[in-house]
């Protein structure tokens, strides 16, 4: 029995005989088969040189990653490069979310702020964040500032948009309830708007995080001396595919971990948004 708030869910499990069909349609079995097939296909494609020398074998990638852990590359070990990218993202992401989320909330709550900011925002919104790289380099040179600037630009839009929509799409019934209970405007904002908008804000943060990764990688591809984007571009210039794929694997791992952390934070900050499991 799983107990959520004051609902009671009863779980009934039926014991079925173990048959071949059951094993074949078992989700975890299929996951295993799929992974195995993927890595086998990768290895075979690499051995058969489908992409000539452009695809390393999986074990070469692991070997390369192991080597990069200990041999410094451009003065930094793999962990150093991971930290360099993560640091840029953290700085840019923090600044953007600290400015954009309150601004989005203000826009949704106050129509004068909305009337001033919305048109400007609508003008800047359609430009892809990656398009800002060039202008950022013209403005700030190729140092850290331009990279953080791109991340701020890229993450600003989803943060603001989701905070704004989060408040705009709050169910009107909730307001009616708090008004009927004698709440004033302040109560409406603090006790209805914010809690109801939190899930949307976090959805925005998740999107922002993935955009931040795109931005930081693009910025590092164009010009950098450190970071994960630098690793893959170096791998390309030295024509060492193992390094490129290794870099991609690390990027995937770090990006995945960060998005898990954000959803963990979401579960911690707004426990009222519970998961409804389908099936």
């Amino acid at each position: 029995m799983v107990d959520i708030a004051n609902e009671i869910k009863q779980q009934v499990q039926e014991r079925r005989p173990l048959t071949l069909a059951m094993i074949l349609t078992n989700r975890w079995f299929l996951y295993g088969v799929s992974m195995l097939a993927f890595f086998l296909a990768w290895d075979m494609a690499a051995v058969a040189r489908v992409f000539s020398s452009g695809l390393p074998r999986p074990y070469e990638v692991v070997l390369q990653l192991w080597r990069m852990m200990f041999d410094p590359l451009a003065g930094k070990s793999l962990l150093g490069h991971i930290w360099a990218s993560t640091q840029r993202i953290l700085i840019g992401f923090t600044i953007a979310s600290l400015v954009a989320v309150p601004l989005g909330l203000m826009m949704a709550l106050n129509r004068y702020v909305n009337a001033i900011v919305k048109p400007l925002f609508d003008l800047l919104k359609p430009m892809p964040p990656l398009a800002w790289i060039s202008i950022a380099i013209l403005w700030f040179g190729i140092g850290e500032t331009s990279k953080v600037f791109i991340i701020i630009i890229g993450t600003f839009v989803p943060c603001l948009l989701d905070a704004y929509n989060g408040v705009r799409l709050v169910e009107p019934e909730l307001y009616d309830v708090i008004r009927m209970l004698g709440g004033n405007r302040r109560h409406e904002i603090i006790q209805v708007c914010f809690p109801a908008a939190f899930p949307a804000i976090f959805a925005g943060l998740q999107i922002a995080l993935s955009i931040a990764w795109s931005c930081v990688l693009a910025a590092e591809l164009v010009s950098a001396r450190s970071g994960l984007g630098f690793i893959i571009i170096l791998g390309m210039n030295l024509s060492r595919p193992a390094m490129v794929v290794g870099g991609m694997v690390v990027i995937a791992l770090v990006a995945w971990t960060m998005s898990q952390l954000v959803s963990g934070l979401e579960r911690f900050v707004c426990p009222w948004k519970r998961e409804i499991d389908s099936r």
Binding site: T25, N26, R27, F29, L30, Y31, V33, S34, M35, A37, F38, G54, L130, S210, W213, S214, L217, A218, L221, G229, I232, I233, G235, M236, P241, V244, V245, G247, M248, I251, A252, L253, A255, W256, S259
Partner: peptide
């Protein structure tokens, strides 16, 4: 079951990271 793990592995990689490969 067959496509999900592969999809989940590829999803977190930003498209930008594919450029060199």
């Amino acid at each position: 079951g067959l496509s999900r793990p592969i999809f989940e592995m590829i999803r977190p990689i930003p498209p930008v990271a594919w450029i060199p490969l």
